[in-house]
Lab assay of single mutants.
Amino acid sequence: GSPLAQQIKNIHSFIHQAKAAGRMDEVRTLQENLHQLMHEYFQQ
């Protein structure tokens, strides 16, 4: 897949890990990143 698709997959797993660790501030930051990446992805 594209590097962007790979990045989106990575962030999904980072979010999963951050949630499991209870780091909600990190989850929020990652979700904002994910949102931006998704936006770029669909602009392609």
Rank of each mutant, 00 (worst) to 15 (best):
R28W: 04
I11P: 00
M38Q: 04
S13R: 14
F42M: 11
R28C: 12
R23N: 11
K19W: 05
S13W: 10
A18V: 03
I15M: 04
G1A: 11
Q17R: 08
A5Y: 14
Q44R: 06
K9E: 06
Q6F: 02
K9I: 10
Q36V: 10
L4P: 03
H39T: 09
I11L: 14
L4Q: 03
H35Q: 09
Q17S: 09
T29E: 11
F42T: 06
T29S: 11
A21I: 05
P3F: 13
L34S: 00
H39I: 13
I15W: 01
K9T: 06
S13V: 10
I8W: 01
A20D: 06
D25E: 11
Q7R: 07
Q6W: 02
Q44V: 10
P3A: 15
F14C: 11
Y41I: 06
L4C: 08
Q43T: 09
Q44Y: 10
T29I: 14
S2H: 11
V27A: 06
Q36R: 12
D25A: 08
G1F: 02
Q36M: 09
L37S: 01
A21W: 04
Q7S: 05
Q7D: 04
S13A: 13
H12P: 02
N10H: 08
Q17P: 00
H16W: 06
R28G: 04
T29N: 09
N33C: 10
Q7C: 09
L30Y: 04
G22M: 04
I15P: 00
N33E: 15
P3H: 14
K19R: 14
L37F: 03
Q44N: 11
L30N: 01
P3L: 14
Q7P: 01
H16A: 14
L34P: 00
R23M: 08
Q6I: 08
K19T: 07
H16F: 05
I15V: 02
Q17T: 07
I8V: 03
I11A: 04
Q31R: 12
Q17D: 10
P3M: 14
H35L: 11
H12E: 12
M38I: 13
K19H: 07
N33D: 10
A20G: 04
M24S: 06
L4N: 03
G22E: 03
I11T: 05
H16K: 15
G1S: 12
N10D: 14
I15D: 00
M38F: 08
N33M: 15
L4Y: 02
G1M: 10
N10C: 15
M24C: 14
H12T: 09
S13H: 13
T29H: 11
L37T: 02
L4F: 03
L30K: 01
D25T: 06
F14R: 15
L37M: 06
I8R: 00
Q43D: 10
K19E: 09
E32K: 11
H39M: 12
M38W: 09
S13Q: 14
Q36A: 11
S2T: 12
F14W: 11
N10L: 14
A21E: 11
V27I: 05
Q44E: 11
F14S: 15
G1K: 13
H35F: 07
E26N: 03
Y41L: 09
N33K: 15
S13L: 10
A5P: 07
K9F: 03
L37K: 03
Q44W: 10
H12W: 13
Q36F: 07
Q17K: 10
G1Y: 01
A21K: 07
Q43A: 11
A20Y: 01
N10W: 10
D25N: 08
M24A: 07
Q7F: 08
S2C: 15
K19I: 13
Y41A: 05
R28I: 09
L34Q: 00
D25L: 05
A5Q: 12
G1T: 13
F14N: 14
H35C: 12
